[in-house]
Design a binder for these strands. Structure first.
Length: 421
DNA sequence: TCTGGGGTCCTAGGACCC
DNA sequence: TCTGGGGTCCTAGGACCC
């Protein structure tokens, strides 16, 4: 049996943990630059605020309805996530952290010895006591069905007490008939449009389709999903220790035409990719750089291009990455456009220890040591205290974060204070 | 004025090999 | 008139996820 454990309105719940007076209040969390809404409490959802709503268009609405607004506080959410996952890991050795707020747990043979509903309730209590984060749990014989069960638990919190198990054939069919096709895990916009044209409106309808048709229209991914919903497992827990690609991309606070500004940004993105790679002990073989204009201003000339650069040898040296990223940028940059976004993505990641040495291009052996020292110093004295010449040393590039909460759990200066009266 | 960021997997088609 | 067969690797693009 698989369990899918999911934190309820995770970012909003994290903010609530340290500000209990936010209970039952509508809360929205904004993306980087305070751009758009990326998370909502139930109360905010009930007000009809859509996912992805641009914050500036809703400013008046927020005020009028007393919606509490927060900038994304990833230091807080990341730390709270780790705490939740650690507690969940107490309940089974087999766990896959699927996202910042979700985990798959595998209970091999547990159903013979445990009452799974009781077990789920114990997990819920443990996490809620240990972190203050409410969770929902779905349990079923396959991952996709566990996702379905989780939706049932979320939708009917009173009746299910936040955990639901799909075990019998009756339960499976009932749940699938209830779940709309567009809400099925793995069915996105395109697929759901195509399926509705075939008179498929629920998850149950989907399981009644012909295998060949599904395979042809949706590849093996769709076919696997169908089997999963039928109760035949095709997906197992995945090992997600190392990433296969790493990206650092940002929208700018405004538009920039100037090459030197974009060059500085791209350099910093390359440095950030280097740091992330060194953290997971990987080197990349390929670096991709892209720039684009503002897609929301269609009346202005639009331009966007990316370029991938094969590296002479796998590396995670910020210096090498910056050099190649800027070479790439020079090739794609065109004068006369107002750029709004850029990014660097590193791909073809290989483990640091097993890298193939290049025959004719010598990599600088000093870089390794230098990067280690820089990482160490930045850890010790604060992020981005050590920078490279290509990065802007005078001004620190700042994102708009007008509603940022404290780093309650990761900084001693900002730790929560408890006063007795 | 103002609209996020970071991932995964699969397929088709081209280039290449023997 | 008529030009093989069987592979691998890589990349771009599309679909999806949170």
């Amino acid at each position: 049996m698989f369990a899918l454990v999911d934190c309820n309105n995770f970012y909003a719940s994290c903010e609530r943990v340290f500000k209990p007076n936010l209970q039952r209040q509508p809360i929205c969390i904004l993306s980087n630059n305070d751009g758009c809404v990326i998370a909502r409490s139930n109360e905010a959802k009930a007000l009809g605020i859509p996912m992805g709503a641009p914050a500036f268009k809703f400013e008046k609405f927020f005020k009028a309805n007393n919606v509490r607004i927060f900038s994304s506080n990833y230091a807080l959410y990341g730390d709270m996530s780790a705490r939740v996952m650690n507690l969940l890991a107490e309940f089974t050795p087999e766990i896959e952290v699927y996202s910042i707020d979700e985990s798959f747990l595998k209970f091999t043979g547990f159903e013979q010895f445990f009452d799974l509903h009781l077990h789920a309730q114990k997990m819920k209590k443990r996490v809620e006591q240990g972190t203050g984060i409410p969770i929902s749990i779905g349990i079923a014989p396959t991952k996709a069905l566990a996702k379905v069960a989780n939706r049932v638990a979320k939708k009917f919190p009173e009746r299910t007490q936040g955990s639901y198990i799909i075990y019998t054939e009756e339960q499976r069919i009932k749940a699938l008939k209830w779940l709309k096709i567009e809400d099925v895990w793995g069915i996105g916009r395109q697929h759901s449009i195509r399926l509705q044209k075939q008179q498929v409106f629920t998850a149950y309808d989907f399981t009644k389709l012909n295998d060949h048709w599904v395979k042809k229209q949706m590849s093996v991914v769709g076919l696997r999903l169908k089997k999963e919903l039928e109760g035949k497992p095709t997906l197992d827990l995945e090992d997600v220790a190392n990433k296969k690609a790493i990206a650092t991309t940002r929208s700018f606070d405004r538009q920039y035409e100037d090459f030197s500004y974009i060059k500085e940004r791209v350099s910093s993105f390359a440095v950030s990719c280097g740091e992330k790679m060194r953290k997971q002990k990987s080197c990349c073989n390929l670096i991709y750089v892209f720039i684009k204009t503002n897609r929301f201003q269609q009346n202005k000339p639009q331009y966007g291009r990316g370029i991938s650069i094969q590296l002479p040898y796998p590396t995670n040296s910020s210096i090498d990455l910056m050099k190649h990223a800027i070479d790439g940028l020079k090739k794609i940059y065109k004068k006369g456009y107002a750029y709004k976004k850029a990014g660097v993505i590193v791909m073809g990641l290989v483990p640091e220890g097993r890298r193939q040495l290049a025959l004719f291009t010598e990599e600088n052996p000093k870089h390794d040591q230098l990067m280690k020292k820089i990482d160490e110093l930045n850890r010790k004295v604060g992020r981005y205290k050590i920078k490279f010449g290509a990065q802007d040393l005078s001004k620190t590039w700042k994102m708009k974060q007008e509603h940022l909460s404290q780093a309650y759990t990761t900084s001693l200066q900002q730790i929560i204070e408890v006063k007795s009266s």
